[in-house]
Simulated assay, not measured.
Amino acid sequence: MRVGNDKSLVQSRQPSGTEKRGSVPSPDYTDFHFNTKTAPAMSDEKYKTAIIEQAKKDQAAGKFQSDSAGFRNLVKSYVSAVSPDRKNIISQGLRAIYKNTRQEPKTFNLLDYMFGSVKYSKEANDVSYAEFYDSNGEMVASFSNGRWISYGTKAEDARESQLWGIYNQAWNSAARANGGTSSSIDVTG
């Protein structure tokens, strides 16, 4: 489930549990919504063709968007091409946090969190809160209460919206072609 947060998409996930730096387990980069930079698997034109074909297959199978493993794989691949290198950003960020021996105050007020003046909270080697930003100044991830949250960047959100538009149009066209006017999805706002 994706949650809207000031026009960006966020996803909260349990840590993968496979790696750990200090008290912080690594996020699961294979998760559907926790993207990190990868090379595109194909050209944008080939992606468009693959998205349309996936929509047709999904419609025939009675599936829509994230109900389909093929759709989830396409989204992950398509969006990751414009994703920031979250894995490196988080790794470098955690390394810097653990190098810093300065203790952070235990209490923060709501305004500190709302306006981003708090980047992390650490007591000894226990990190309770951390925010991670890309080179554009966009928050790409945070860690709080033992959970990772991935925030979609403007580029990721735009690319994912583009994919949804292609997919939804193809899915609805396939539904009409199959005579299923009642099974088409209305994706207009």
Score class of each variant (00 low, 15 high):
90 I>R: 07
165 G>D: 09
163 L>Y: 00
159 R>S: 01
155 A>C: 06
91 S>L: 05
102 R>S: 15
90 I>P: 03
138 E>D: 07
110 L>I: 14
125 N>P: 03
86 R>G: 00
155 A>L: 11
154 K>C: 06
177 A>K: 15
174 A>V: 06
169 Q>R: 12
95 R>Y: 12
162 Q>D: 13
159 R>H: 02
96 A>M: 11
143 F>C: 00
96 A>P: 05
147 R>H: 12
176 R>Q: 14
137 G>T: 00
86 R>T: 01
125 N>A: 12
116 G>S: 08
137 G>L: 02
121 S>V: 12
87 K>M: 02
181 T>V: 15
123 E>Y: 15
100 N>M: 08
142 S>V: 00
163 L>W: 01
99 K>P: 05
126 D>A: 11
156 E>A: 03
143 F>D: 00
99 K>L: 12
154 K>S: 14
170 A>S: 10
159 R>V: 03
114 M>L: 14
168 N>D: 12
138 E>A: 01
149 I>S: 08
142 S>C: 07
152 G>P: 02
139 M>T: 03
150 S>Y: 11
174 A>F: 07
167 Y>Q: 02
160 E>N: 10
137 G>W: 00
167 Y>V: 07
168 N>T: 08
133 Y>G: 08
123 E>Q: 11
107 T>P: 04
139 M>D: 07
149 I>A: 05
158 A>E: 13
142 S>G: 05
97 I>H: 06
91 S>I: 01
143 F>S: 00
122 K>T: 08
149 I>P: 01
150 S>K: 12
107 T>I: 09
109 N>I: 12
103 Q>R: 13
94 L>Y: 03
132 F>Q: 02
158 A>S: 11
181 T>K: 13
146 G>V: 05
125 N>L: 08
135 S>L: 11
100 N>L: 05
124 A>N: 15
92 Q>E: 14
87 K>Q: 13
110 L>C: 11
136 N>L: 12
174 A>K: 10
146 G>L: 06
106 K>I: 07
110 L>A: 15
179 G>C: 06
88 N>I: 07
129 Y>L: 09
106 K>V: 07
